[in-house]
């Protein structure tokens, strides 16, 4: 697996974590981290946009 493939896997896992963290802050009883949650949702969207742009830019690089 090349750095390109591992980077895409990493961005995917990070995106899931970002949305998961956002959901966790919403489920928190005291609501202490709600701002972090919204920032995390934005970060998740940013990671998706970045991942798509990265994929387009490195289209010719092998996954192996």
């Amino acid at each position: 697996m090349s750095l390109k493939a591992f980077h895409l896997a990493f961005i995917s896992v990070s995106t899931i974590m970002a949305f998961g963290f956002g959901a966790w802050t919403l489920m928190e009883d005291n609501g202490n981290y709600i701002l972090y949650g919204f920032l995390s949702f934005f970060a998740g969207v940013g990671l998706i946009v970045y991942g798509i742009r990265f994929l387009k830019k490195f289209r010719e690089v092998s996954y192996l």
């Binding site: 697996m1 090349s2 750095l3 591992f6 980077h7 896997a9 990493f10 896992v13 990070s14 974590m17 998961g20 963290f21 966790w24």
Partner: peptide, 24 residues
């Protein structure tokens, strides 16, 4: 550089699992 980058990504992905498991 590619090999060093793979190692660095591994270290980072470990943290992505550690953070929710320990902090949340």
């Amino acid at each position: 550089i590619e090999v060093a980058g793979l190692y660095w990504h591994f270290v980072d992905i470990i943290w992505i699992f550690l953070f929710p498991a320990l902090y949340l």
